[in-house]
């Protein structure tokens, strides 16, 4: 299963690669990265019919994570991707919006990578 990480911070790529280096090495997990909502949608267009797990930041310039979530949930129905939202503003408003738009999970920065790893392992 491919995991698409969407975040406007470019160093998130290296971080994930390091954090999940064993899993990547073992071939357990396959990460792809997009640095904006728009870029993420392009990726999804290329990955049609592939099972995808999406980890998206909410606060991004341009298309926000919530907008991306809405687009994914309305347009990419088959197979329905799992979408986990990550935000630095762990507030009720964003949480409610993410829930309403059909997010499968909601994480708050700073991300607890151990917990995330467990979650991803059960999902993939």
């Amino acid at each position: 299963m491919k995991i698409l990480v969407v975040d406007d911070e470019r160093d998130i790529k290296l971080l994930f690669q390091q954090r999940f280096r064993k899993e990547i090495k073992n071939g357990e997990m396959d990460f792809v990265f997009a640095f904006s909502g728009e870029e993420a949608l392009e990726f999804l267009d290329q990955l049609v019919h592939e099972a995808v797990l999406i980890l998206s930041d909410i606060n991004m310039p341009g298309m926000s994570g919530l907008q991306l979530l809405e687009r994914i949930k309305t347009n990419y129905l088959e197979p329905p991707p799992v979408v986990m939202m990550i935000t630095a503003y762990g507030d009720a408003e964003n949480y409610a919006a993410a829930q309403r738009l059909g997010a499968d999970d909601f994480l708050t920065k700073p991300v607890d990578f151990k917990a995330l790893k467990e979650k991803l392992k059960t999902l993939t």
Partner: peptide, 17 residues
């Protein structure tokens, strides 16, 4: 706060790694 939080997260994460 947000702008500081992001780099701090990186510092912490990369340190742990």
């Amino acid at each position: 706060a947000h702008e500081i939080q992001n780099p701090l997260n990186f510092v912490n994460n990369f340190s742990e790694v």
